[in-house]
Design a protein around this nucleic acid. Structure first.
Lengths: 162, 162
DNA sequence: CCAGATAGACAAGCTACCTGTCGAACTCTA
DNA sequence: TAGAGTTCGACAGGTAGCTTGTCTATCTGG
């Protein structure tokens, strides 16, 4: 049970503010990704998990080999290779041997992959817009800015995740 | 790759505000739980994962059978039973047959379990306090209140997670 | 008193990771 | 320019935390 997919809801447990905050953060993430996931499936991209989009984004951003992708995502190259295999199967990335270095299999995001990324981003933005409508655009911006500041230290040392 | 444990950091990718927000939420959660996890290990509770504390909390809050725990956590009773087995192994819960209903194995959080829960909550609160010091107590309260409101709909129907 | 519901155990399978090992390909250095 | 060391990706095998399906024991309502 390392990753909590659901929270003991529905009964009045006095929880500490700190625990409460942690749960709200996770819940917020799941709330967004679950909706995006469902909508993507409806729009021609079934089987796409939350991580696929982020992984594809990393590849597109320059992590164009399995080892490099692993490094950027802070997972082993084997795990990265597995993720790539799934993305290739789904038609989101293309793999071909590098002409200059025969060890490398260069990764390229396919048009369909770009389509999925674009749609995914739009869906995330849509949810964010709905949230902005609920609490106010300015307030949401503030929330996001605060979160960015509070987690800023992690942006530099991704390794501290372990 | 359903659960993202790390994010493609360290290179300047223009991400949409919605995607950014989702990542910040997850990052915030991991930031808290990773620190608590490390500190718990240092203070006599090694091997405790993020989920253990939440599961224990659910048991203590009244989910005192495997099936009920599964319902509250929105997982199968088998998954709940497995989690219970781990918690029992670690000495955090005690299991005994209900005298009135021989089908039931009643769960009870042990003193050590309560100790871990208390310590865990204190550690979460500690991090929250540090955050409050960084952006201001009032601001953090506001962030938390907004998050609570934005995810409120999920508090009633935990099933929508699937 | 029996039909149906419920509790929990067991088996098998899945996903997303991990470590360890390997051959092929590249680079650095003596 | 040969050999040493590094790096790439593949493969094998293992683990955690879930899943579905099935089973028996036990309880409950008409």
């Amino acid at each position: 049970m390392s990753t909590i997919r659901a929270i003991p809801y529905g009964f009045p447990v006095p929880r500490s503010p700190g625990v409460e905050l942690a749960l709200l953060l996770l819940d917020g993430f799941h709330s967004m990704t679950d909706q995006v996931h469902a909508e993507l499936a409806d729009r021609g991209h079934p089987g796409v998990r939350a991580g696929h989009e982020f992984t594809l984004r990393a590849i597109d951003a320059g992590a164009d080999t399995a080892s490099e992708l692993g490094r950027r995502l802070s997972v082993t190259k084997q795990a990265a290779a597995q993720a790539i295999a799934v993305l290739e199967q789904l038609g989101y990335v293309h793999r071909e041997t590098d002409p200059g270095d025969a060890r490398l299999k260069r990764l390229r995001v396919t048009p369909r992959g770009h389509e999925m990324m674009t749609l995914g981003a739009a869906l995330f933005d849509e949810i964010r817009d709905r949230w902005a409508a609920q609490i106010g655009a300015k307030e949401l911006d503030t929330v996001q800015a605060h979160l960015a500041r509070l987690t800023a230290h992690r942006s530099r040392t991704a390794d501290d995740l372990l």
